[in-house]
Structure formats: structure tokens, C-alpha cells
């Protein structure tokens, strides 16, 4: 048998600082651009529903009458496609991940009427399981039919990356 081959690496590990992040006693600052959770800027949202139709998993539900935009964090895969199709650019990716929980609660954002100088306070996390889930299943069924119509309207969308101009089509 040979001698202690990983010796230098093991000796190094004894004296260098540990490579373990001692979570939850230490935390690491998430780098910018990390895929965490989707957040909606309620002041620019117009409740058009493009994100709901574009969502690959059916996690977003938009209710025009009740003026709410909700996302199911237990269905969102953080792909970022909704961010690219939003016409008002009100969706963005917050680097902090969604937390673990004992029940599957849906995050609801109340979108106030525009324009209004004095804004109502928005609450960020209310738990409404059955009602919003039913609304989102109906939305997912509609997404299949409406997808082609929306993709044509997308011709006017502004793509985040610097794409080539209309000379391409």
C-alpha cells in the first residue's frame, strides 16, 4: 500500500479556514441575478394576464375583477419567462428563495386602481388555499387556448436582450 496520498490536502484542511457555510448561524449574501422568487411591482401592473398565459407551470393567476395578482410559490420553477413577456416590465426576480413551510400557501398581491395619488397598503402574504387554487386551475385551462393569440400579440414585446431589429422578420 502506498503512503498517505491525500496527505497534503488533509493537512491543509486542518489549518485553513473551513469551506463549510455554517448555515443557519452564518448566511451568504446571494449574488445579484440569483433566481429566487418572482415579485410584482403593484404600481405598474395593469393586470393584462400575459404572464398568466406565458407561465410554463400555471403558477400565476390574475383576477381582473378582484384586482389581485397571485403566484403559487409551490408551483413556480423560477424560469423567468413571465419577466420577458410582461409589457410593463413590472415583474422581477428577487434573489431570496421562497421559504419552507408546513402548508402550501399562495402569495397574493393586491393591485390598486391606477392612477391614484394615495395608495392602499398592500399585504404580501395571505393564506387562501382552495379559492385561489381553483382560479388558477381554470386559468391554466384557458392558457392552452389563448396561447396562440398571445404569441402573435407578442410581436410588439420588448425582449430584454438586445435583439436584432425587424430586418430579421
Amino acid at each position: 500500500m502506498g503512503f498517505f496520498k491525500l496527505g497534503s490536502m488533509t493537512m491543509g484542511s486542518l489549518f485553513k479556514e473551513p469551506s463549510t457555510l455554517r448555515y443557519p448561524f452564518e448566511t451568504k449574501e446571494p449574488p445579484a441575478g440569483l433566481k429566487g422568487r418572482i415579485v410584482n411591482d403593484k404600481d405598474s401592473c395593469i393586470l393584462c394576464g400575459a404572464c398568466m398565459r406565458a407561465c410554463t407551470t400555471g403558477a400565476i393567476a390574475v383576477d381582473r375583477k378582484g384586482r389581485t395578482w397571485s403566484i403559487n410559490p409551490y408551483r413556480c420553477v423560477q424560469c423567468g419567462y413571465c419577466i420577458t413577456v410582461c409589457p410593463k416590465k413590472c415583474l422581477s426576480m428577487n434573489p431570496h428563495y421562497s421559504e419552507a413551510a408546513r402548508e402550501k400557501k399562495i402569495r397574493i398581491v393586491n393591485v390598486p386602481e391606477h392612477p391614484k395619488p394615495a395608495r392602499a397598503k398592500a399585504d404580501a402574504a395571505k393564506g387562501v388555499d382552495a379559492g385561489a387554487k381553483a382560479g388558477e386551475e381554470a386559468a391554466a385551462a384557458k392558457a392552452g387556448q389563448k396561447a396562440t393569440a398571445v404569441k402573435d400579440a407578442e410581436g410588439a414585446e420588448t425582449n430584454g436582450a438586445a435583439g436584432k431589429d425587424a430586418a430579421e422578420n
Binding site: 448555515y23 443557519p24 448566511t27 451568504k28 410559490p73 409551490y74 413556480c76 420553477v77 423560477q78 428563495y97 421562497s98 421559504e99 419552507a100 413551510a101 408546513r102 402548508e103 402550501k104
Partner: peptide
Amino acid sequence: DVYVPGCAVRPEA
């Protein structure tokens, strides 16, 4: 009993 979201789930979560 516990649901941990994420795709793929982060080790901190």
C-alpha cells in the same frame, strides 16, 4: 409534513 420549494431546491432552504 414540510414543503420546501425551489427548482432545484437550495441547500439553505
